[in-house]
């Protein structure tokens, strides 16, 4: 399942990325394979989303989140 499919409060573990360039940026920000993520909130207009990862809140667009594959 994709990160963009999580519901608020739901957890997942990052498995892999489908976009190489994006994955470099995401990893720098602490989104590594094996890392646990939780969907914290969705912006009022439905996009972007905010996730909890390695102890802080990170916001990204749904389209970017759709390139992150989770184990679930």
């Amino acid at each position: 399942m994709k990160l963009s499919d999580l519901k608020i409060g739901q957890h997942g573990i990052i498995k892999e990325f489908t976009d190489l360039a994006l994955s470099v940026k995401l990893m720098e920000m602490g989104c590594l394979p094996g890392e646990s993520v939780c969907l914290e909130r969705i912006a009022p207009l439905g996009d972007p989303i905010a996730i909890k990862v390695s102890g802080y809140q990170l916001s990204l667009r749904k389209e970017e989140a759709s390139k992150v594959i989770l184990h679930i």
Binding site: A21, L22, K25, M29, Q57, L58, S59, L60, E64
Partner: peptide, 11 residues
């Protein structure tokens, strides 16, 4: 190019 929006929401 593609546009990224990856941003920290500080406390």
């Amino acid at each position: 190019e593609a546009s990224y929006f990856i941003m920290e929401l500080p406390i």
